[in-house]
Amino acid sequence: MIVKVDNLVKRYKELIALDHFSMEVREGEILGLLGPNGCGKTTAINCILSLLSFDKGEVEVLGKKMTPDAYDIKRQIGMVPQEVAVFENLTVKENIDYFCGLYIDDRSLRREYVEEAIDFVELKDYIGFYPKKLSGGLKRRLNIACGIVHKPRLIFLDEPTVAVDAQSRNFILEGIKKLNREGSTIIYTTHYLEEAEMLCNRIVIMDNGKSLVSGTNQELKAMITTTEKIIVRFSQDDDGIMERIGDIPHVIEVTEEDGDYIIKFENGINNISNLLEFIMENNLIYTKLYSQLPTLNDVFLELTGKGLRD
């Protein structure tokens, strides 16, 4: 394990920010730390990095106990914080070079790494710019470059796509995959389930400072009873239709949202044909019908009773 967190407890007076939080990260994977805003993701990262003190628990990074002066461990870590953290009066290149210099002493190697990082985040046209002259997306790229320029073995990315336009977001996500392909282990915190689904090998779902479940995308979805959702819209209203749909085999729940009926199924393999049979038997006309596999939001919903973005 490259990171091992065991029973971490962090209190802010009466508030419990981390409640016996545990997780493990394997070398070479992209681990997604997924949870709604304020669930304790950033606090967990800051405790793992020894930036924050904690009340209880143990943290091991790269096989050693993590402490604020564990400089040998810090040398192998890269951090991309949620907020852009660069020097406002240093140019793009100077910022990247400064942060690289904190890890790499050799000047020629440093120059090479800085160039690579600039290419990686595609900021070549902006190397002489001050951060205040950059757009939000470009600033985020600079923020990433400063965190990964020294080619760390372990990278923490704390919601790097928050407040970023779609184009920059895709660019950042592709870059993260590339970093992982080049050998870095990545811990990625997000509240965007699409990102976690697309990017991460394994996911830890957090809520209220607790680690609820962890596993691969498929493993997590297999943990819940809902295996399929079918959304159907009928051309006319029919009293008592929800009750009758509920009698179809394997249906768990039927809800109505803006005229659409959302039907949750469990473990059935003929759910659509069962539903079509029901429609024909009842002489109903449908204008829309499609099937959806469960998402991480469904996993979260079933575990906590609320959506990820509620």
Partner: peptide
């Protein structure tokens, strides 16, 4: 500061 937090994670 955010930079302070970042610097505290580096070997500096």
């Amino acid at each position: 500061t955010n930079i302070g937090a970042r610097l505290n994670i580096t070997p500096l």
